[in-house]
Amino acid sequence: MLVLSLWLCAALLPQVLSCPDACSSCSGPEDILCEACRAGWTLHHGTCVDIDECGTELATCPSDSYCFNTEGSYACRGCDRSCVGCMGSGPARCKKCASGFRLTGTKCLDIDECAERILPCSDFDELCTNVEGSFRCDCAEGFRRKNHVCVKEQQPSAEEKGLLEDITNEEVEVLQQMFFGVVLCALATLAAKGDMVFTSIFMGAVAAMAGYWLSDRGGRYLDSLLRGR
């Protein structure tokens, strides 16, 4: 008796496991032997047929999406950004064109506001750049946005900046030494010719340079002593 029961179970088990995927119960492995169908399918002449929920009231999708049928169910997919409501994917399936788009032929295409409007930007110092569905206004070169308007960037003039503004103290000292060196060379050349006037001027310049150098070095030395260096 136990052997007979096991034989019957072994004979029935393959039939249960070999039903088509859409069948919840069947009398055999063939598609036409379905007795009941899973959710999303309907029985038609012994075969489970997919229900197209998108063509019935079973599907409920938001207004900014469309229904896409799948085997045994459905999915809601987003409309193209050019659409306000749609019946499928892409700009050719729009129910209505979104703002910034226009129906051109069978598609909702982007409007180039920069080319269509006389003054798309309110400020004369702004440049229009078209973007999908809209446009933006950027400040022209040499301008920057301040308090929602474009203002010209101020560049320091030569008078405001000064010719020697960026020169350091060390560079000024070198320039001074070069200048006095050129003057001394010119005076020495004239003094070598025996002209007593230029010889006197040359000697006076040398004495002035020596005095300036000694006083400058002495001042620095004294300053170092007072600071304890």
Rank of each mutant, 00 (worst) to 15 (best):
Y66N: 04
L8S: 05
S73Y: 04
A140P: 00
L4E: 10
C48W: 03
M87V: 10
E53P: 06
S24L: 14
L187N: 05
P91C: 02
G211Q: 09
G100Q: 03
G88R: 12
L33G: 00
T47P: 03
K107D: 12
D52A: 11
V183K: 14
V172I: 14
S224E: 15
T47Y: 00
G88S: 13
Q154T: 05
D64H: 13
S134K: 02
Q176T: 11
K161D: 01
T47N: 07
C54V: 09
Q15A: 13
G218F: 11
C150P: 05
D138Y: 03
K161W: 05
N130G: 02
R220C: 04
C108P: 02
C61M: 01
N130L: 04
S5W: 04
T168M: 00
V149I: 13
V206N: 06
L12D: 03
G40V: 04
C61K: 06
P91V: 05
S73P: 06
Y66K: 03
L175S: 08
A36F: 07
G28Y: 08
A208V: 12
R217D: 06
W41Q: 03
G72P: 06
V49P: 01
E141S: 11
C19I: 06
G162A: 10
R229P: 00
L184M: 12
K96P: 01
A140N: 11
C108S: 01
A188V: 02
M209Q: 13
A140D: 13
E57F: 07
D166K: 03
A75C: 01
C139H: 08
L17A: 11
I51K: 05
P29Y: 03
S73D: 14
A205F: 10
E160L: 09
C26I: 07
T104E: 12
F135E: 03
D52S: 14
E113M: 02
K193I: 05
A115Q: 15
P29T: 04
G219A: 11
A36E: 14
